[in-house]
Amino acid sequence: MSFNATRPNLLAAPGVAWLMAFMVVPCLLVLSYAFFQRGTWGGIDYTFTLENFARVADPLYARIFLNSARIALTTTLIAILIAYPAAYAIARAPRMRQPILLFFAVLPFWSNYLIRTYAWIVLLNREGLINNLLRAMGYTGEPLSLLYTESAVIIGLVYNYLPFVILAIYSTLSRLNPELMEASRDLGAGPIRTFFRVTLPLTLPGVAAGGVFVFVLSIGNFVTPALLGGGRFQMVGNLVYDQFLTANDWPFGAALGMALIATMIVLLLVQARATSHASGERRGEAA
């Protein structure tokens, strides 16, 4: 495979065609409802208006976005801090054992999101396993209110998206050129220095990819905030869902969706730039 000018476009073509046909075209059709009015009985009244965008500008929605972004970001950071050492340990396990460890890291997630969440409720509730365990160990105070808090939401999100980060980081760590590390050590760098100067920059793209996964999946989640957060917290993805289904207001849902998609894409593009800058753009000289 040579990396000349035409080949890349050819390689990308099938994926791009799929996304154009099954994402861009249909989503643009739906998002274009943002320019029309909600019919009195739901549905679309095809009269042009910008009212929906004016409603999106309401600071209430910015506040909901920022709050859910904060929860998603906290989740992301915790997930990376747990996943990185795990992925590192898996990548250093004997070669034969690595696929087995990866498999067991994703296996719990082939059950079902709802029943996993119910399991967390059993663990965290006031009459739940954790509180009972504490009581058995001699704790006599008020039972801990673990459930229906922001922490419960974050625990649930970290839990469900942890394997995604492990996979992403592992995929950049696995079979990293060990000569680089030896070279670093030969040059007198200690293990900590080697990690920060060699390993971390090399795996940064994986950390970034995994972080993006957790962030976007968390901000769009509505099961965990509803069940573990007791519906007291709302992620911004839920807002769009409510407009489409509960309020039956597709035009406003489309306008909110558009604002969310645009904001997120800009954030991701900035993030991608920053990551490739930090890990040192290495490809220019090769192509």
Binding site: V16, C27, V30, F213, Y241, G253, A254
Partner: peptide, 21 residues
């Protein structure tokens, strides 16, 4: 942007869009 979009499009938008299509 095209490669990021499927991750950030709210599920409900994609669901309604595909069913309409």
């Amino acid at each position: 942007a095209l490669a990021f979009a499927p991750m950030v499009i709210p599920d409900i938008v994609l669901a309604v869009a595909l069913l309409s299509l």
